[in-house]
């Protein structure tokens, strides 16, 4: 960790604004599809729920990768997230198993 590794700006990567707008459009479209699926009842309930969870995780990932710059920043920031996300998966897993036992979804 010498001082020589400060060869670049550590504050935020320089990303052109059209890319930010493109991500916003994708988020808006995904949200519209989510709403249509939830309110339209086109698919079986369980399949709809699975798709909605997938879309939600994808939207969260898009915001974190592009708006929070995890895609462009050093991987150290992403590594910080590994342990808590692992814990969250365990927590939700336990809750969902308990929920399934009561036929919640």
């Amino acid at each position: 960790m010498t001082d020589t590794h400060e060869a670049k700006d550590l504050q935020a990567p320089h990303i052109k604004w059209p890319k930010y707008v493109a991500v916003a459009v994708v988020l808006a479209v995904m949200t519209a599809v989510e709403i249509a699926l939830a309110l339209g009842h086109f698919l079986p309930q369980q399949l709809t729920t699975l798709i909605l969870i997938g879309f939600t995780l994808a939207k969260a990932a898009l915001v974190m990768l592009f708006y929070m710059h995890l895609k462009y920043d050093t991987k150290w920031y992403s590594l910080v997230l590994v342990f808590p996300l692992f814990m969250v998966v365990i927590l939700f897993g336990v809750v969902l198993i308990a929920a399934a036992a009561r036929n919640i979804f």
């Binding site: 670049k8 700006d9 550590l10 910080v80």
Partner: peptide, 26 residues
């Protein structure tokens, strides 16, 4: 020179202020 200061002991490419906010987010 337009670069964020790197404190001794920082991880490579890591801005400690930003790292602190990430820890808060965790």
């Amino acid at each position: 020179q337009g670069h964020a200061p790197v404190e001794p002991g920082s991880l490579p490419g890591v801005d400690n202020r930003k790292f602190g906010v990430w820890l808060f987010i965790v």
